[in-house]
Nucleic acid binder design. Sequence first.
DNA 1: AACCTGTCTATTGTCAACATTTATCGCGTG
DNA 2: CACGCGATAAATGTTGACAATAGACAGGTT
Lengths: 257, 257
Amino acid sequence: MRRRSGLINCLQFSSNQRVILMDDPLTEPLDDLTVVRTVSLTNAIEKQIERLIVEGELAPGERLNEIQLASRFGTSRGPLREATRSLEAKGFVEVIRNRGVFVRQLTVEEALEVYDVRAALFGLAGRLLAQKMNDELLAKLNRQLDAMEAAAAQSDFETYYPLNLEFHRTIVESAGNKTLLAEYLRFVKKMHLFRAKSLVQGGGLAVSNREHSEMVDALASGDVERAHATCWRHVERAKARLLAAIEAESTQAASVS
Amino acid sequence: MRRRSGLINCLQFSSNQRVILMDDPLTEPLDDLTVVRTVSLTNAIEKQIERLIVEGELAPGERLNEIQLASRFGTSRGPLREATRSLEAKGFVEVIRNRGVFVRQLTVEEALEVYDVRAALFGLAGRLLAQKMNDELLAKLNRQLDAMEAAAAQSDFETYYPLNLEFHRTIVESAGNKTLLAEYLRFVKKMHLFRAKSLVQGGGLAVSNREHSEMVDALASGDVERAHATCWRHVERAKARLLAAIEAESTQAASVS
DNA sequence: AACCTGTCTATTGTCAACATTTATCGCGTG
DNA sequence: CACGCGATAAATGTTGACAATAGACAGGTT
């Protein structure tokens, strides 16, 4: 099949052959078709590789084999290379000339750097949101708070973690600065590149939720400076928890060996 | 010349044919050659396009013709497309499928968004730097302050502007957070995409320099919160000046028409 | 005159092939 | 046995060609 001649164009995967792009008017409604047309192969591939990285199938430090990935996605190397160059610019992979593309690895120092930047961005979100807080939004945040508390009470981490992400996203999204949101989300994703992902995600459910309550209170108070400081401090505390976890890990490893 | 067979590989330009990549051991010292070997064609092209955008040869909204640019750089379209995908991820161009690549245009709203994010990042820089200030660094900042003051006294904007950029860069760079520096620089570059570039660069030399003095004082005081607030406010004031300039421009245009 | 329609052209999307470099592995030598 | 060295294989860098799309334009119709 050298040419797909406008029939079917799909991205296929290892175990579950998932169809991403459809171009067949017989099997697909017309509305979806127009959507499909706007997505380039490069974009689709980029998203898929990003997924593989975030979900851990591609581990930090691992090399991305162009030929292998291209055949897996059912495309040539051209679009794949374009996708990896985009991912490089976003900081998810590292390209070394004549050597290949590698999933970016975050050192402890870089992870701490990212936390500081995230703190600054999240602080800005708090500042902006405090100025435009309304009842509807407050109700939404309180709902999310309750849901997290319920999950925390049962120590249900699988439920808690996505709720936690969504809560933070709501705050940044509601701040109303799209540039800020895009950067914030990029940095959150970037933390997945840190070797000890579990350490990042860990850190007391109940403790975290107490901070979340404080944050909502500060945001609702309308006190811009307080909201700013509270949101900033929340990320700083997460950074401190990570640091503590790393040190606990290393002393434990030292005592074992 | 189908193959360059390891002799000369150059990027050529319209009026002045500038040689960017050299691979000829006869004309180029070996040290430079090794450097050249590590730079991919894609990277070189990307940097050149970025230069064309920042210097204004490629105006915001303008389309980048792949064939034309590729022939101008003396390469094929492959590396060029990779370069544009990287620039897209960095937010300098916009890619529309089957239509082409366009130099990104910043609306007023987006420009103001960028200012807010920059304020947050620069505030973080101030916070970090206040904690690690030393005599040597303070002397450097004061030297830059003096140089700017001298240029401002003569209303020599051509000298003042790069000094101003360098001063801010010194602060962010000295903060010691590489992630922060990279993001900060990207946002500064992004402001070049705003239609009214002159408005961004404008805004009272003397006024700005008074703020710079305050900033250095705050950084030297060791008071983290004060340094944070002062640096943040400096960017916020620049934003306010831009906003005022835009409104002055629009009212002027309204009165003329 | 406005509008629709079919054709044509310029440009982008994608691919397969070739050139070049790096990594691997077996082999001989000190 | 360790170490360097050369042939081989595999992967990346780059290219030119072909397919498909969007925009321009001319011609006919209402």
